[in-house]
């Protein structure tokens, strides 16, 4: 969390994250090159680069897409989410090298405009069941470029988190295009069953994880029962100390926190990337988002100075040891006195 924009707000955790990423990529290339040379001893350097970078980007996209649902299913994966954007930008760069070199090798050296060649050269074969896989890859690369270019917090703040999120959902369309690009591209000539098995396992894993996580979230999104605009949260003791219980209001989820013998309620949606605040903890008196550590004061939903983020707050009451929260959100940053409870 930084109060001003800089290219990357480096800290120890980000450095460790990126170092691990670079180490994994170095290991991948160190394995890919000898295996590729063993299988295709005559492979040229250009083909080696095109294939190794393409496969690296495709594998990394699977890792990126698996992180979100894994974190929804198990907190142990949260550290992977912390700097996922660097994974995304790295994946784009790998795909960019793959795409640019393929473009030069297969289109730039001919006598027609290379972009026309990229978009039209395969259409002659449509009648024979050929699917033009190169324009599919180019379209995926374009989407990945838009996402990488807008990945910085500057865009997140200026586009607003919901718009930014909607734009970045383009990754699912890019993923579909990449699946088709690989299936109708390299999988046509790499006919060993292991390739098809690996490819099938990869997308099966991603689809299964997202469907399971999505289904569970859907169950949690059923609106809670209202009694005169108030939602029953549960007994005081059912809210773990320095943590929250999440209930679903008429609009968004509400996180009801218990801390320092007090109870406060805020929106469950972090202002940064809409992370689930109710799954975070109260640290140093502040609600701390589990995704990237943005912090908010429980009584007014404001980030402590010099930060300026604000989230909606909710009124709370306790009757006969039962906690109730009002379903109507108050404007972001509104102070609501916490309810004092017995120690």
């Amino acid at each position: 969390m930084t109060s001003h924009y800089q290219a990357v707000g480096w800290n120890g955790q980000k450095k460790r994250y990126d170092f691990t990423l670079i180490a994994c990529l170095a290991t991948y290339f160190a394995l890919f090159v000898p295996i590729a040379l063993w299988r295709h001893p005559d492979m040229t350097a250009e083909t080696m680069i095109i294939r190794s970078f393409g496969l690296a980007a495709f594998l990394l996209l699977h890792v990126i897409l698996a992180i979100g649902p894994l974190c929804r299913l198990n907190d142990a994966f949260l550290p992977l989410l912390y700097n996922r954007r660097h994974l995304g930008v790295t994946m784009f760069l790998l795909a960019f090298v793959h795409g640019t070199l393929s473009f030069i090798q297969f289109h730039v050296l001919g006598d027609i405009n290379p972009f026309v060649s990229l978009l039209t050269s395969e259409w002659h074969y449509l009648a024979y069941g050929w699917v033009p896989f190169q324009p599919l890859g180019a379209a995926a690369l374009f989407i990945l470029f838009l996402m990488a270019a807008t990945s910085h917090d500057f865009w997140l703040a200026n586009l607003s988190a919901p718009t930014w999120k909607a734009l970045h959902m383009g990754v699912y369309f890019a993923y579909f295009l990449m699946i088709a690009h690989v299936g109708f591209g390299i999988l046509q000539s790499e006919v060993h069953p292991w390739w098809a098995f690996g490819f099938g396992s990869g997308f099966s894993l991603i689809l299964t994880l997202h469907l399971i996580a999505g289904w569970r979230e859907r169950r949690h999104d059923q609106p809670s029962e209202l009694a005169d605009d108030w939602i029953r949260v549960g007994l005081v003791d059912e809210i773990p100390m320095n943590r929250a219980r999440i209930v679903c209001g008429s609009g968004e989820r509400i996180a009801v926190f218990r801390y320092d013998n007090k109870i406060s309620a805020v929106s469950n949606v972090c202002q940064h990337q809409n992370g689930p605040l109710g799954e975070g903890r109260v640290i140093d008196g502040c609600i701390t988002c589990p995704w990237h550590g943005y912090q908010y004061l429980p009584e007014n939903g404001q980030s402590p100075p010099p930060f300026t983020e604000k989230i909606p707050t909710f009124q709370v009451r306790v009757d006969a040891n039962i906690v109730w929260v009002n379903a109507q959100p108050l404007p972001a940053g509104t102070h609501v006195s916490p309810v004092e409870i017995e120690p």
């Binding site: 919901p162 999120k165 997202h210 999505g214 859907r218 609009g251």
Partner: peptide
Amino acid sequence: MIRTHRRRHLSFFV
């Protein structure tokens, strides 16, 4: 994630 996005996300994956 906000609710509409969660719903849209699940529909995408279906």
